[in-house]
Amino acid sequence: MQTIDLDPALHDRSLDLATAQVAAVRPADLTRPTPCAGWDLAALLAHMVGQNHGFATAIRGEAVDPAAFAPVAGAGLAEWIRSVENLRDARETPDPNAVLLPEISTTQRFPMSLVIAFHTLDSAVHAWDVAASLPHGPGRTWRPDPELAAVVLTSARQVPDGEQRTAPGAAFGPSLAVDDRADPWSEVLTQLGRRP
Rank of each mutant, 00 (worst) to 15 (best):
M1A: 12
M1K: 01
Q2Y: 09
Q2K: 13
I4P: 01
I4A: 05
D7K: 04
D7Y: 08
A9T: 14
A9Y: 09
A9R: 13
R13F: 02
R13V: 08
S14N: 06
L15V: 10
A18K: 07
A20E: 14
Q21R: 14
V25D: 01
R26Y: 11
R26I: 04
A28H: 12
T31I: 11
T31E: 13
R32D: 13
C36E: 03
A37I: 10
D40G: 00
D40I: 02
L41C: 09
A43C: 13
L44Q: 10
A46V: 09
H47F: 09
M48Y: 05
M48V: 15
V49D: 03
Q51T: 14
Q51A: 15
N52G: 15
H53Q: 14
H53N: 14
F55K: 06
F55P: 00
T57N: 13
A58E: 02
I59H: 00
R60F: 04
E62A: 14
E62H: 13
A63T: 14
A63Y: 01
D65F: 08
P66Y: 05
A68K: 11
F69M: 07
F69N: 05
P71E: 07
P71H: 11
A73L: 09
A75I: 02
A75S: 15
G76S: 11
W80E: 05
S83H: 10
A90T: 10
R91W: 11
T93H: 15
L100F: 06
L100Y: 04
L101P: 00
S105K: 03
T106R: 11
Q108E: 14
Q108H: 13
Q108V: 13
R109A: 10
R109L: 06
F110L: 07
P111L: 10
M112D: 12
L114M: 11
F118G: 05
L121T: 03
S123Q: 13
V125D: 04
H126S: 08
A127Q: 02
D129Y: 06
V130L: 05
A131M: 03
A132M: 08
A132Y: 01
L134K: 03
L134H: 07
G137V: 05
P138M: 08
P138S: 15
R140W: 08
W142Y: 09
W142N: 06
P144T: 05
D145N: 11
P146R: 04
L148R: 04
A149M: 04
A150K: 06
V152W: 00
T154G: 07
A156K: 02
A156Q: 00
A156D: 00
V159E: 01
V159I: 15
P160I: 05
G162F: 06
E163F: 14
E163M: 13
T166Y: 05
T166A: 14
P168T: 06
G169C: 08
A170S: 12
A171C: 09
F172M: 02
F172R: 05
S175Q: 13
L176E: 06
L176M: 11
A177D: 12
A177Q: 11
V178R: 12
D179N: 12
D179R: 07
A182E: 03
P184L: 01
P184M: 02
S186V: 08
S186N: 12
E187G: 08
V188Y: 00
V188E: 01
L189H: 04
T190V: 14
T190G: 03
G193E: 07
R195Q: 15
P196M: 07
